[in-house]
């Protein structure tokens, strides 16, 4: 159009565009409604089932048994990739996504969160298994007797084996 001086048009483009940068952090950031940020775990809802731990790609969520009879679900934001897979898989909707992303801190402990669960103890062998809340959840959702859920998987299996043995008339399974 303007022949050899066409490149001057960039000034027009700039004028039309105006200023597009923001005075962040003095102005709110430009984050859309669908942005995936940090997650929040509702410790009152969480039953400590560990599904989220299995789904989490970068091990931002881990679960470990600690101290006397506790199972701890730990969330370390530093590893989180904000994929929200944990939200997808949580059976009780205990995890909520937020739009928070300003997570920088000078204290690394701010990046850790934990949900502490009391583990259930087996009525038969007194061993620890699962968590108290998960036990309650299973009982509520499935038509199983308390007697069954009260035992740890080990004792449950032994009980089952014994039942088999009885039915087969005392034959050994080996």
């Amino acid at each position: 159009m303007m022949g050899k001086l066409g490149f001057v048009k960039i000034l027009v483009i700039a004028a039309e565009a105006g200023r597009v940068t923001r005075k962040y952090p003095y102005e709110p950031p430009l984050v859309s409604s669908d942005f995936r940020g940090k997650i929040e775990i509702d410790e009152t809802k969480c039953i400590g089932c560990g599904s989220c731990v299995l789904a989490c790609p970068p091990n931002a969520l881990v679960m470990s048994d600690e101290g006397e009879g506790y199972r701890v679900l730990k969330y370390f934001v530093g590893r989180c990739i904000f994929c929200w897979r944990c939200i997808d898989v949580c059976p009780v909707d205990a995890i909520k996504g937020t739009r928070e992303f300003e997570l920088a801190t000078d204290n690394v402990e701010d990046l850790d969160e934990a949900v502490i669960h009391k583990r259930a103890s087996c009525t038969e062998c007194n061993g620890l298994y699962s968590t108290v809340k998960q036990k309650a959840y299973v009982m509520e959702k499935a038509p199983i007797t308390e007697n069954y859920v009260d035992k740890c998987p080990e004792c449950r299996r032994n009980k089952l084996l014994r039942a088999f043995e009885k039915r087969r008339g005392g034959e050994s399974l080996e």
Binding site: I10, I13, A14, A17, V20, L30, V31, S32, S33, D34, F35, R36, I81, F82, C83, W84
Partner: peptide
């Protein structure tokens, strides 16, 4: 650099769109 900035200014619209569509500007997941 002027072309650089304006190209990225336009790109920003697309990045925002990506975030709206997927939940993240870059790692759509």
């Amino acid at each position: 650099d002027t072309g650089f900035m304006h190209s990225w200014r336009i790109r920003e619209l697309v990045m925002y769109l990506a975030e709206l569509l997927t939940g993240s500007r870059k790692t759509y997941g």
